[in-house]
Design a protein around this nucleic acid. Structure first.
Length: 293
DNA sequence: CCGCGGGCCTGAGAGC
DNA sequence: TGCTCTCAGGCCCGCG
């Protein structure tokens, strides 16, 4: 499911019931997600207070009182849901919350706040990992990540520098988490349409010969920031798996301009183009060949 | 060093 | 109804 806006939506849903609360019990219903859990995984979580719940790129990071960090990634199909005391038995409304342990509820936390937090991930491309907070800089999953796209460090000059000399496509460059961390297939397609840049364009053309950002890069960066911020405000995009932790759907999918809209009219004013689907490095790209150059 | 394709999994939907 | 095929929001690894 999840790109940065979906992960941030999840973080905002979990923070009120996890931050400042103690993990009364942690249960792993199977021995692995993307990798096997260490044998003492649940024991290292039990009794810890969650000092804070942050996000880096598409990773959730829970700061624990033990001095460890619990890293969580949603993979393609992961979701969290929060079951408040009493909700589990409420019929109707949140039908997917009716049973406390559904299929693919692989990890469950019981919090001292009274909430139960369940991680569900049918495809198991997600992961959880514990590492010491003072070794954060050495954590291989985080070490090579580029800047946060919503942060000040991500600007046109930085992106131009990172892409200068890159022979790959703009699409592939923006998906590369080492260049900018948090974008995925949907929001790259959407940001490129909004800034009228072809996904097939060489990444190197985001910089001018002198290395300064090209004019199009000055449009691309704010397009990325805006689409991400708007998607967060909408609770993310729900295609198949993503839900807010309350069980509500996100609704940014209704504002897609190109993603999964092959054959439909490009929404750019006075464009008149038709959205096309191509495959780039094995993944669908949606774009308008008329207004994206 | 870099870019690409395959693989990891399950489930939904289309087509027959 | 049910089978088979394709595709899916991510990321790691090995290959050339």
């Amino acid at each position: 499911m999840p790109e940065l806006p979906e992960v941030e939506t999840v973080r905002r849903g979990l923070a009120p019931v996890m931050e400042g609360a103690r993990i009364v019990e942690a249960v792993a219903h199977r021995g692995d997600l993307r990798w096997p859990f260490p044998k003492d995984f649940a024991a290292r979580l039990k009794g810890q207070t969650v000092i804070g719940l942050g996000r880096r790129a598409k990773y959730l990071l829970a700061d624990l009182s033990s001095g460890e960090v619990l890293l969580m990634h949603l993979g393609m199909s992961g979701s969290f849901r929060v079951i408040l005391d009493g909700d589990a038995k409420t019929p109707g409304v949140f039908h997917h919350q009716r049973s406390e342990y559904g299929k693919h509820d692989h990890v469950v936390f019981r919090m001292s706040s009274g909430a139960t937090v369940a991680f569900n991930d049918p495809r198991r491309f997600g992961c959880m990992k514990l590492f010491p907070r003072d070794k954060m800089e050495d954590e291989p999953l985080l070490r090579a990540l580029g800047p946060e796209p919503l942060g000040n460090a991500f600007d046109a000059a930085m992106l131009a520098t990172a892409c200068a000399g890159k022979k790959t496509s703009v699409k592939a460059a923006l998906l590369d988490q080492r260049i900018v961390a948090g974008l995925g297939n949907i929001y790259v397609c959407e940001a490129l349409n909004r800034s009228h840049i072809s996904p097939k364009r060489m990444a190197s053309t985001l910089a001018t010969r002198s290395g300064a950002p090209h004019e199009r890069t000055e449009l691309l960066v704010p397009a990325i920031k805006t689409v991400l911020a708007d998607a967060i405000a909408a609770g993310g995009s729900s295609l198949r798996d993503h839900r807010q932790t309350s069980g509500e759907l996100g609704y940014f999918q209704h504002r897609f301009r190109v993603y999964d809209r092959e054959g439909k009219a490009c929404p750019t004013k006075a464009c008149g183009g038709t959205i096309k689907r191509i495959v780039q490095s094995g993944r669908s790209t949606f774009f308008c060949p008329v207004c994206q150059k």
